[in-house]
Design a protein around this nucleic acid. Structure first.
Lengths: 226, 226
DNA sequence: ATTTGTGAATGTCTTCACAGCC
DNA sequence: GGCTGTGAAGACATTCACAAAT
């Protein structure tokens, strides 16, 4: 009998690489689709195709979680789904506050995809007095000075910043002071946060600008060939 | 006298790495801020701080475009801004069509940040008959069967897909057939496209799920230490 | 004296290719 | 026979540290 740290098995290697973590939700989505279609089992090739990645990469990614496949057979969809869900913390729901209820914040509040992925939007906050008290996606918009109280009361650890760029740093400071340790930032600004706080940035303009870059290169090349 | 390929100087190394391309828009934004503040010159340390990256990384990134700094002095803000803008194709405006005018598509249509970054939303398309003919952000929503015509008429090369996941692949096929070669995909689905077509994916649920993963790890650790 | 531009070193991610197991 | 799990190789990205330039 081996010694256990706690009630669940300790994954072998520990420390899943960042690149892998970023893909696990994609695999989980593909597994959900397979499960709904009634597929009982799948190979790494099948699953990789559904997720849009190289099969070797998929296998290496999964190997960081443990050894859940059967050689010569493949993966049991239901079992793997359960293990991946556990690995990324989807066995519980995470309460999230959205700061900034402009067009983007409103869209995020109403986004259907969150609830089935363990994300629960539980509060909306804005600085604009004309928005406060209005109802968006079934939630009342609260004033920004209530933010520390909201975070504390509900034990919120994850926040979305969808304010204008100029307000983002100030909001982030308030969030961090209140106890938030994970921020998803849609504002076009770099957020400075203390160690131990996680920031992910989504920048809509930048995504299109990157596409424009490649588009331009294509245009330059065909021009040169012509 | 060296031989020139065409009227502008050919960048020395060619082929800017992907990771660099993804950061160039960030640098451009920081340079714009410096220019507006009236700063005439800046060092790599200054600019890196504004962009939130390591100075050595910034210098290596810029070195892929050319040699636009002065040793012992730094970079001329206005000049560097111009060069970075040219590198990422921001000297011209790119016409973009948005497919899917739900909450997210509407938010994107109204997004203020695009116009100043060379992105022009010129058409909106949806499959829902109740939305067709309505005006969103000053544009009339057109039916999805007009998509090929819209792309062809305006010579559109970049499209945004903001449909439900189930419709995304079909829309992508139509876009590619019509001549689009760059797609920004917000739908929660993997798009299969021919070689030569560029797809970038933004998945809002996944971003939050990645944060939740790290959040869970933090919780597990403090629990183990306690 | 100061700051760029860059070879070299390090770190990280991806892909190959096959041993090991069913 | 078929498929997983993984060591080893390769590709790519980041960071260091310093020579070259003003």
């Amino acid at each position: 009998m081996t010694i256990l740290r706690n009630d669940r098995t300790v994954p072998p290697g520990r420390e899943v690489p960042d690149a892998t973590v970023a893909r696990l939700p994609v695999y989980l989505r593909a597994l959900n689709a397979l499960a709904e279609a009634g597929t009982p089992t799948c190979s790494s090739v099948d699953l990789a195709a559904a997720a849009g990645v190289n099969p070797a990469k998929l296998r290496k990614d999964l190997s960081h979680l443990g050894s859940y496949g059967t050689r010569g057979v493949g993966y049991d969809v239901e079992h793997l789904r359960h293990e991946v869900a556990r690995a990324i913390g989807q066995t519980q729901d995470w309460d999230v506050v959205i700061v900034g209820v402009g067009h983007l914040g409103t869209a995020l509040s109403s986004y259907q995809g969150f609830s089935t992925r363990g994300i629960r939007i539980v509060a909306l906050v804005d600085a604009d007095p004309t928005r406060i008290g209005t109802t968006v996606a079934g939630l009342e918009v609260e004033p920004v000075d209530r933010l520390p109280a909201i975070v504390a009361e509900r034990g919120i650890r994850i926040a979305v910043v969808a304010t204008p760029g100029a307000a983002a740093q100030e909001v982030a400071d308030v969030l961090v002071a209140a106890g938030v340790t994970s921020i998803l930032n849609f504002a076009p600004a770099h957020l400075e946060v203390p160690n131990g706080v996680d920031v992910r940035k989504v920048d809509l303009s930048i995504e299109l600008q990157i596409l424009a870059y490649h588009q331009q290169r294509r245009a330059d090349e065909t021009e040169a060939t012509a």
